[in-house]
């Protein structure tokens, strides 16, 4: 941790967002054109800002920066390599959940502030979705932290030196990945913007800089949840021969590609069914996962 860390994290956020956009092109089956991503972004920034007519315009203007801050803080908690991470708190795993928890109010603020019926509907859909999925996400993080006996993400990576957590706790991984995709607004959980039914939903009114910030924040979110998945379940930077940072980049890239690929293959889920799954299956299962994590810790990690 030095004075340069914030700049390194910002560079990682911008470069990572660009890389995620390129992976998106590759998964979509179009020719990968890194320059095109930048040109599209520049074109978007040229557009004028849209201003909503309602009285809550300040919520509309505040939502994109809040989403971006939440995404960057979540990214900063991910342990990228031994000794390199944005914030190295002993409670880093909780800070990750806390940063992701601010995605929900920012999406709601975007929808409510824009004031259109589809935008408000998108905001409310996302609140309903996250009420069900935020809890399993935070609970699974504690289950993974139990063997490490620490909430420091780097310690959770180090405890996986022999066996990756996805083999030790497969149920935890099975709960974490869908919840992480939901919070990162990825298809098939993209109910808040749902381009084909709500025409952009909560984000439908945004243009120009606003839209650019939201697109950037969403790509950083994808990178953050994929990085955390790689760190918590796939042993992070640990691996033979290659340097740690390369291993972490490969695993994160694979998770990003897997998540985006799943989003292209699966149809968007219906909100009511997702909520039934979240409340009746995922949350009780997450409690079971925590109990199991305690047993595993006592039996194998002591």
């Amino acid at each position: 941790m030095s004075n340069w860390t914030p700049f390194a994290i910002l560079a990682l956020a911008l470069g990572g967002a660009w890389a995620v956009a390129c992976v998106e092109q590759a998964v979509a089956g179009v020719r990968v054109a890194p320059a095109l991503v930048l040109r599209r972004a520049a074109e978007q920034l040229d557009q004028p800002l849209a201003v909503p007519a309602g009285r809550d315009a300040w919520l509309y203007h505040l939502a994109p920066p809040l989403l971006l801050v939440a995404a960057v803080v979540a990214l900063a908690t991910v342990p990228w390599a031994p000794g390199f991470r944005g914030v190295d708190l002993s409670t880093g795993a909780i800070l990750f959940s806390a940063a992701l928890a601010y995605v929900t109010p920012s999406v709601f603020m975007a929808g409510w502030g824009a004031g259109g019926p589809l935008a408000v509907l998108g905001g409310f859909r996302f609140i309903a979705l996250m009420l069900g999925f935020a809890m399993p996400l935070a609970m699974v993080v504690t289950a993974v932290a139990a063997p490490a006996e620490s909430l420091r993400p780097a310690a959770i990576v180090e405890v996986q030196h022999a066996v990756p957590m996805v083999i030790v706790q497969p149920f935890a991984a099975a709960l974490f990945v869908p919840a992480a995709m939901a919070v990162a607004l990825l298809a098939p959980f993209d109910l808040a913007d749902a381009t084909t039914e709500l025409e952009g939903g909560a984000f439908s009114r945004y243009t120009g800089l606003h839209a650019g910030l939201i697109a950037l924040a969403r790509k950083i979110l994808v990178l953050a949840v994929a990085g955390m998945t790689a760190a918590l379940f796939l042993a992070g930077w640990q691996g033979p021969l290659l340097p740690p940072a390369i291993w972490m980049a490969l695993k994160t890239g694979a998770v990003v590609a897997g998540m985006l690929w799943a989003g292209r293959r699966l149809p968007r889920f219906e909100l009511e069914r997702l909520l039934v799954v979240a409340w009746i299956v995922a949350i009780p299962a997450a409690i079971g996962v925590i109990v199991l994590a305690g047993l595993i810790t006592l039996l194998f990690y002591r």
């Binding site: 708190l89 409670t91 800070l95 806390a98 928890a101 601010y102 929900t104 109010p105 935070a138």
Partner: peptide, 10 residues
């Protein structure tokens, strides 16, 4: 601090 940030948002 971190817990306050997490819980209050939810």
């Amino acid at each position: 601090g971190v817990l306050q940030l997490l819980m209050m948002s939810g």
